[in-house]
Design a protein around this nucleic acid. Structure first.
Lengths: 231, 231
DNA sequence: ATATCTGTGACACGGTGTTGACGTGCGGGT
DNA sequence: ACCCGCACGTCAACACCGTGTCACAGATAT
């Protein structure tokens, strides 16, 4: 776990750093708000331990900065005052937790660990083939970056074809996976849907017909979506 | 935000629930550890407010159960004692925060909100999409800088949609996350709420309908990579 | 007690899925 | 060579489901 301690009182900062290192964490130290800001911009920390009262950039501003950066970094605010209003204020700035000085060291460790324990949820993969991208959670499809509007069935068919990873998918399989269980086995609706799908996706065609077997999208595969260098 | 209050003293439990509802949260109540356990197994809560001293299953056991379930649910422990050793113990059981009775209600709200923000990882304190900004802690929404007055449900729906980061959210999901347990699964109220929400937000509309799937706000989530240039 | 918020039921409308008819191209049989 | 049959593509018509909208009633807050 990667931790940054931002605290202007050098002895306290070092003591905290040493204690956290003893717990097996990788700890960096910054003595001013600006220094902290700089380091946080370079390295992706799991947790930032932030003194609210700092020379240079204020703790509040730095906190906002970090939280709005979109990273998964958690902020634990430290402050001299333990007044309730102060605590509420800190939390509403975006801090994930709050600890008043003086504090018991085991509690600090417990809280840092609680913040760092957070698992990063897996981002759902994005399915691609050639210049076509399909995002299952956003329910969007792009061709060469251009948004393509698809209906439910069209989207479902394309999703199945792409997730097949280039393999041939029979009409029966498509019926089974995209339509519900009481679909007429002799229906021609799959053919019609594939047609409109092709039309909407435009040239050059992505979907091959394998006569007697079904449909196939050459070069289909999945890649991870945005972000998350976490672990 | 979906919250479960597990507390055996009925008047206190109800008072907490009502207060949190006034803040726009969807709150369920359980009066015993077993009841809490059951409800937590059925519904995915953002935060569980847990009295440590309970009839039935103990607060400690329930806490462990929830934390190890692999869900993102956060636990806020309530206890009569405010001793530090007690706090550390609670945190090491997996609780994400700790609050001693008696407590100031604004602090409880702030902490629940902070935990809820963590339950949806990497959510910045202000959610945006196009020229719409939503501040969860202030409970305000602005369109092009102009304040928009929203009711609790409207706000909750918009909050969920924005924090979904552009993903599609089904009506069922919205019901689950914005309404509490006695919501009729067949209700049409989500549709109506979305309508009034759209009306209040004005033109151009930012909420897309994805037929057969749900609703979506393109470009939501501000700093996260929703753009086509991502990576 | 009054106003605002929330939920309900009815209805209108448009998109979507499905169907059936027909067109096209290929291959095999007589 | 010719015909026929098969598999698939294409098109337009239609029925239906999902959704938006409205007015009203009950619930809740101040």
């Amino acid at each position: 776990m990667r931790v940054l301690v931002v605290e202007d009182e050098a002895p306290l900062a070092e003591a905290i750093a040493r204690g956290l290192r003893r717990e097996g964490m990788a700890v960096d130290v910054a003595f001013t708000g600006d220094e902290g800001h700089e380091k946080a911009a370079i390295t992706r920390y799991d947790v930032v331990l932030l003194d609210r009262d700092l020379p240079g950039m204020s703790g509040d501003d730095l906190c906002k900065e970090i939280v709005t950066s979109g990273e998964l970094t958690r902020v634990l605010m430290l402050t001299a005052s333990g007044a309730v209003s102060d605590r509420v204020e800190g939390l509403s700035l975006g801090a994930d937790d709050y600890l008043g000085k003086p504090f018991a060291f085991p509690e600090l460790v417990a809280r840092v660990r609680a913040l760092g324990r957070r698992a990063t949820p897996a981002t759902p993969p994005v399915l691609t083939a050639a210049d076509v991208e399909l995002d299952p959670s956003r329910r969007t499809v792009r061709r060469a970056g251009e948004l393509v509007e698809l209906t439910r069935k069209e989207f479902g068919v394309l999703e199945v074809l792409l997730s097949a990873g280039g393999a041939v998918v029979s009409s029966e399989d498509l019926l089974e996976r995209v339509w519900d269980e009481n679909a007429d086995p002799f229906t021609t609706t799959v053919r019609v849907t594939v047609m409109t799908l092709r039309k909407k996706l435009g040239e050059p065609g992505i979907i091959d017909t394998v006569v007697g077997s079904g449909y196939r999208v050459p070069g289909a595969g999945s890649s991870m979506g945005s972000g998350s260098l976490a672990e």
